[in-house]
């Protein structure tokens, strides 16, 4: 059956406000499905949904967030065969290659699920100060993070971008371009996990059309441009600076997603808060 997929905003699956759809092809140009083509107003709605979800998600206990992320990993595994088939199709991989990518993606989710209640310990400190105070620094989530889904690694890359963002307690809006099929299936997985609606919002469409609106949106607090085309990056970074966004520093091209990640993403999407507390007598 040929399908026409929709967007994933605020835990629901709406059509694009614009009514547009576009075809998704496999790596050899064969038609796979139709997907909604998001407009800037869909993006605005997604940011509003992410903002709405932020208080609840960032306020949830780290332990609870870890459980939810682990549940997402379980649900990913339940759809393993589908992900393998779709990843193989859009990335033109062999079945073995796709299997390896999907299994690594599931492991990546479990890895970040374990990090949720360790971030504070590892990235936070108690500071030695010259006075009768306790002084400690703790990482807090930055807010709403905008991300562009990596193009080459459609599932593993996407999860490696999204998982640290939500593990740290942020909510996010992700724009996926022309290899969006695994991303769409991921949104179906997220909707049936325990992830609260709005924590991850997934838009399919043209990256070049949507990215400038994401980068300039004043209610987006940080950007991950790993998935941005090289030609767009400088302009996006410039416009992000106008609304004082935190932008993840990334190198040229996409990193090797199969390597175990560093803490760079968790660190970038948290803000350090330092508290001084008087010592009792």
């Amino acid at each position: 059956m040929t399908k026409t997929y929709k967007l994933y905003i605020g835990g629901a699956f709406p059509r694009s406000e614009s009514g547009r759809v576009h075809p998704v092809h496999d790596a050899r140009g064969r038609f796979l499905a139709n997907a909604a083509q998001a407009s800037r107003k869909d993006l605005r709605d997604a940011v509003a949904a992410a903002r709405k979800a932020f208080d609840g998600w960032s306020g949830a206990t780290a332990y609870n967030r870890g459980q939810v992320l682990f549940r997402v990993a379980e649900m990913l595994e339940g759809r393993r065969e589908q992900f393998i088939a779709e990843t193989a199709a859009v990335e033109d991989l062999s079945v073995e290659g796709a299997t390896a990518a999907v299994d690594t993606a599931i492991d990546r989710m479990v890895w970040y699920a374990g990090w949720t209640d360790k971030i504070t310990t590892v990235l936070g400190t108690t500071n030695p100060v010259a006075g009768p105070y306790f002084s400690f620094s703790v990482p807090e989530p930055t807010g709403v993070v905008g991300a562009l889904a990596p193009r080459q690694s459609s599932l593993l890359g996407l999860l490696s971008v999204v998982a640290p963002v939500i593990a740290a307690g942020n909510t996010c809006v992700v724009v996926a371009g022309d290899r969006a099929l695994p991303a769409i299936t991921l949104s179906e997985v997220l909707a049936t996990s325990d992830l609260p609606g709005g924590v991850i919002n997934l838009l399919t469409g043209h990256v070049a059309e949507l990215a400038p609106w994401l980068a300039t949106h004043a209610d987006v607090n940080a950007l991950d441009l790993t998935g941005a085309p090289e030609t767009l990056r400088p302009e996006l970074e410039r416009s992000a600076s106008e609304t004082v966004k935190r932008v993840l520093p990334v190198g040229r091209g996409e990193p090797d997603w199969t390597r175990e990640p560093s803490l760079k993403r968790l660190r970038t999407f948290t803000e350090t808060k330092t508290v001084w507390h008087p010592v009792g007598t």
Partner: peptide, 14 residues
């Protein structure tokens, strides 16, 4: 109003 004048979306922080 800010969105119209600035050419990008504004937010409740402003």
């Amino acid at each position: 109003r800010r969105t119209q004048l600035d050419g990008h979306y504004s937010g409740p922080d402003y």
